[in-house]
Design a protein around this nucleic acid. Structure first.
Length: 801
DNA sequence: GCCCATGTATTTTAGACAGCATGTC
DNA sequence: CTAAAATACATGGGC
């Protein structure tokens, strides 16, 4: 089928032509025949790299041509960024991206024709009643089979159900890997099912044993260059001019294999050495950098302990053909599109606690195998499993290559996130009584799979009971409504169990310490915890011996709970060290974690501390202040003494520490020191910028030295302060704040309630710069955490719900 | 007493989503 | 119902 003959906007057709795409692949043509461009729902289950993205784009362009707006839902932030780039390149249409870490376009998001978002972000937008969502006329569900994922499937299912509920006539395009029950999923989506195993590059799947790869019907000998089968398979492809992807079961294995491969590759090229340099630059120029050592030779490993930038360099280096082999954990299987001529699935079983080594799902095998063969670049793709003995050869064919893919099952009721979803349904007005909840749930995939279920009413009323007890919803007559707490929890995207855990334990009555607070957050279901190693247990016991009194939660007796408690403590200690300015390298060594892990822990910690502050501030403003301080400390990884400096733009933990140690503990002293002295510490460009900021001078052609002699900025009235106009001033006056000095003595929490926290921060930052000159001392008691008292009691019982 | 080879007990084991603010210069 | 590989430690023998 010729693209030019299709009813698609001209710019899109031109863009395709420029990329060399003139006609459709057979499965793509089938989708067009099935109404892709006429707004029909489709579930498309075809192999990776057979043109799913183009199908999505065709559907979206045709909807946009008809005045519509499209939402492209992906499971990973990295994937969102990739699609965003890809769609943006075509020009003409407006593309936006919405993920948790990437919301700069948020305010104008609704103006875009296409919005790329993660499923969680979409859920969050729904909970915050984002108006433009009702104008969406087409959703693309990338990797829709993830609806069966235990962790995150429920969210995706609820998002789909909600959007279809509010937007009648919505076109739904599901893009799925091969699954066992595609018909059932298609039925639920009211979609036509398109399946095909057609691939643009031929894929050969086989098992290696005893010097040969056995494919169905053919064999291929592999030259035994070394005594390692996995390595030989790898070198075989490289000699032939291809690249290799090796999937293994653990990080250590990934690193081990890359080291082995690097040893065999020996030389490396100028390109790989450059990549190595780039990777070295990312860390403190310390001695051993295994990744850089490997990459220099053209081998790399890939897992979640790496930094994002490291992963990006490796992926790009592989795509450009510089890196010849990557050994990876499943990160790469699910993530970006990174094909290679040969994929080696070396470890086909993985540890699962309580179960031992279990074989990976067939679906996952196919996802890995599907990575073999680069369209237009490789003549064919090979996916190879490695057998350790003769009988295993056949077994591997049976369990993976010739096996049926697993079915997917709805996770939306037995998942512990049901409470959160019920709360959000009530808070956003999807349902205002039990009847409506049931009706809504009847539209889920769960009920489609279990049409005769009778347990649903009980499950729903259990959730309602929990939420009522937690004072998140309120029941009068038959009507359910969210309390202000419930609304807050829903909008903060917090698991209700987490919110309850926090509120139960931060009640007044106990001495609150930094580690005690962090510990509460770290045992919540929303925190990603660290795995406990045996050496940790010893370390934690020692810590407990000395600091048991600092903790709020008592050590539980039951073993399972104890493990959660301890791993939460370990995670809390990591956050504590980070906020105590322990160097990243030291933290990584002390807890045996990678830089990427640290980043993730801090990221989650930041989010949960922010949420905690919001939760607590309403009831105990004093405590809210303390938590806000701590949130800032964890955000930047600084001790309390650096708080004044961190408010400056372009000053992070390192520069703030440099300035502080050189005798400039706050913005005023920095300004007084002048550009030349500060420049010696943090470089002239930054120094100039910072001092300009402190003096409140807008960026202009003026030199930084002039800025030093600028007359002091002395506001007289409230409206003299940038950020405060007549309306805001009126609001403040209504609360009894009439003058600048009132503002300075007012406490931050009540200000936040009047102005919102972002504005308050901004205004306080401005005020803090001028206090000495105005003669008013801003005494914002950031009392040390250890002395903070709160009253009440904490209980262990409701821990973790 | 030291070094190495071998045997035995112990330890370790993937990944990754989410908030903020809605008026003002 | 279900693990396996790497590593740390222990032992023993040769010198």
């Amino acid at each position: 089928m010729d693209i030019q003959s299709l009813p698609l906007p001209e710019p899109f057709i031109r863009a395709c032509k420029n990329k060399g795409i003139t006609s459709l692949y057979p499965p793509q043509a089938e989708c067009v025949h099935n109404g892709l461009l006429e707004g029909k729902n489709l579930l498309i289950s075809i192999p990776t790299a057979s043109g799913k993205t183009l199908l999505a784009e065709m559907a979206m362009w045709s909807r946009i041509g008809a005045g519509g707006k499209c939402l492209y839902i992906v499971p990973l932030r990295a994937l969102a960024a990739e699609k965003y780039d890809e769609f943006s390149k075509k020009g003409v249409i407006r593309v936006g991206i919405a993920t948790g870490d990437f919301d700069r376009t948020d305010s104008y998001l609704g103006d875009n024709d296409i919005i790329v978002a993660t499923s969680e972000k979409t859920d969050s937008l729904l909970r915050n009643k984002t108006p433009w969502l009702s104008r969406i006329t087409c959703i693309i569900l990338d990797e829709v089979h993830l609806i069966g994922s235990e962790n995150r499937g429920a969210t995706l299912e609820m998002v789909i159900t909600k959007l279809r509920y509010t937007n009648p006539g919505l076109q739904v395009i599901g893009l799925s890997a091969t699954i066992g029950n595609p018909g059932q999923l298609a039925e639920w989506l009211d979609a036509k099912l398109v399946t095909s195993s057609w691939r643009p590059v031929d894929l050969k799947q086989g098992v290696y044993y005893d010097g040969k790869i056995r494919f169905a019907g053919s064999e291929r000998p592999v030259h035994a260059k070394t005594k390692h089968d996995d390595l030989n398979l790898c070198l075989d492809t490289i000699e032939e001019g291809g690249q290799c992807l090796v999937f293994v079961s653990s990080r250590r294995n990934a690193e081990g294999f890359a080291k082995k491969a690097a040893g065999a590759l020996k030389a490396g090229t100028p390109d790989t050495r450059e990549l190595g340099r780039q990777i070295r630059k990312l860390r403190d120029r310390d001695e051993g950098n295994l990744l850089a050592d490997c990459v220099e030779k053209g081998a790399a490993f890939h897992h979640a302990g790496l930094l994002r930038q490291e992963r990006a360099i490796i992926e790009e280096g592989f795509r450009n053909g510089f890196i010849e082999v990557i050994s990876a954990t499943p990160t790469l299987a699910a993530g970006l599109n990174l094909p290679a001529r040969r994929v080696i699935i070396r470890d086909y079983s993985r540890f699962s606690s309580g179960l031992g080594m279990v074989p990976i799902p067939v679906g996952e095998y196919h996802q890995m195998a599907g990575r073999a063969g680069r369209p237009h670049l490789d003549p064919y793709g090979e996916a190879v499993l490695i057998a350790k003995d003769a009988p295993t050869v056949e077994r591997l064919f049976d369990t993976f290559i010739d096996a049926e893919t697993e079915r997917i099952d709805s996770q939306c009721v037995d998942d512990n996130s049901l409470c959160a979803h019920i709360l959000s349904l009530i808070a956003t007005g999807f349902a205002s009584d039990e009847q409506a909840l049931t009706e809504f749930m009847n539209r889920t995939f769960y009920v489609h799979q279990h049409p005769k279920t009778r347990s649903l009413p009980r499950i729903i009323s259990d959730a309602i009971r929990f939420l009522t007890q937690a004072e998140m919803i309120h029941q009068s007559e038959q009507t359910l409504s969210a309390t202000s707490l419930g609304n807050l929890v829903s909008r903060l995207y917090l698991n209700p169990c987490t919110a309850r855990l926090i509120l139960e334990n931060l009640k007044p009555g106990k001495t609150l310490t930094l580690i005690g607070l962090l510990h509460v957050i770290c045992v919540s279901p929303d925190m990603q915890r660290l795995y406990l190693k045996s050496a940790d247990t010893q370390m934690l016991r020692t810590f407990l011996f000395k600091h048991n009194d600092d903790l709020i939660l008592p050590l539980p007796f039951e073993q399972e709970e104890e493990e959660l408690w301890l791993s939460g403590l370990k995670t809390a200690l990591v956050l504590g060290d980070w906020a105590d300015e322990i160097s990243e390298k030291q933290i990584e060594e002390r807890y045996g974690i990678g830089a990427g892990d640290l980043y993730n822990i801090v990221d989650s910690g930041k989010w949960l501390l922010h949420a905690t502050e919001r939760l607590v501030s309403t009831h105990i403003p004093e405590l809210g202040k303390t938590i806000a301080t701590l949130a800032t400390r964890v955000h930047h990884g600084i001790k309390a003494e650096l708080l004044p400096l961190i408010t400056l733009r372009n000053i992070g933990r390192v520069r703030a520490r440099t300035l502080f140690n050189a005798g400039y503990p706050d913005p005023e002293s920095v300004a007084k020191a002048g550009v030349s002295r500060i420049a010696r510490l943090i470089g002239e460009g930054i120094a100039r910028q910072v001092i300009e900021e402190i003096s409140g001078v807008k960026k202009s052609g003026k030199s930084g030295f002039e800025a030093e002699n600028k007359p002091e900025y002395k506001p007289q009235k409230l409206t003299d302060i940038p950020g405060i106009g007549p309306k805001i001033a009126q609001k403040l006056q209504n609360e009894g704040i009439n003058t600048i000095s009132d503002l300075l003595t007012a406490d931050k929490v009540s200000l936040s309630n009047i102005l919102g926290s972002a504005r308050t921060e901004k205004i306080l930052a401005i005020l803090s710069e001028l206090t000495p000159e105005t003669g008013i001392k801003a005494e914002r008691n950031e009392s040390p955490l250890r002395e903070q008292k709160i009253t009440g009691q904490s209980s262990w019982e409701d821990f973790g719900c």
